[in-house]
Amino acid sequence: MPMATAPQAPPSWPLVRLDSARKYFPIRGGLFGHSARYVRAVNNVSMTIERGETFGLVGESGSGKTTLARLIPGLLRPSGGRVLYDGRDIARTHGGELNRLRRRMGIVFQDPASSLNPRSPVRASIRRPLDLQGVRGREAERRVLETIDRVNLGREVLDRYPHQLSGGQQQRASIARAIILNPELVILDEPTSALDVSIQAQILNLLQSLQEQIRLTYLFITHNLSIVRYMSDRIGVMYLGKLVEVAPAEALHDRPFHPYTAALLSASPPLNPRLRDRKRYRLEGDPPSLISPPPGCGLHPRCPFAVEVCSERTPPLVEAAARRLVACHRWEELTLKVGPGA
């Protein structure tokens, strides 16, 4: 049975690898539904997620982070480039083989209220992955109970319907469904942004202890920089469908290399009123359209450091330091600093 147990000696390739992955959505228009225009939601992204790490993906709305997350389990097919899971090209995997790969991943969505089938009792939703695997009867029930214990959900919720649960309980149930098959990777798409602060803390703690207990790899998507820092080993920053910076979490917060990262960090309220007058990197205007992104670097019309070359050539994502990548023409000249003492 293709159970998702990690191999004894982990292979040398990363668990997830994106090679110039692209996802363009055609815009229907014209009399015959032809389309020459596309929304470039994910535009040439290359990255890896290593086994056992938490890779945080941050970006604002329209940055393409959610689309990227859907490329990995094959919920969306890439328009170009490659998406590899454990060395296998998702776009070339079909039917049963794709399903076997998908069972090694779990996914948790933002809105807990609509993540569970409203017409099914919670038990049925959590148990469904086992049904699909042919695990039935006592064994299935045993694993359901084991899993809800893991996510600290009381047994009394199993016979209720999703609308009878609180937001925190709904999200625990979604997490239980995502981990019941012992996946390697769990994709967390803004898992706490619909929750209150005190519930958010419970869920974040739960996710961290699950990772320690059952050695999960996380792709954690959020727009909240303090949460991504608390959760992640490495962070990728997306802007306008492109990855503009990748760095270890602490390094990114201490010294961002990309002006967009600096702007994002300095715009996030720091939970300390004494830092109100901190140095801020402000961006001009609003994000441009994904249909006709500006030439060169996508940020140049808004970037305070833009020079001529920025509007002419797209900066490649280059290795700037150990474990650090940045896509900016001027990163070497800039010294960006955010936070206390800046």
Binding site: F109, Q110, S115, R128
Partner: peptide
């Protein structure tokens, strides 16, 4: 809806998604 996406990510077939997830919610 996320619960249908989740079902697809679990490997549910189209038929099963229509009858288990979508149809009951249109009753």
């Amino acid at each position: 809806m996320p619960f249908v996406e989740a079902a697809r990510a679990l490997g549910e077939s189209d038929l099963s998604i229509m009858f288990r997830y979508i149809l009951p919610n249109t009753f």
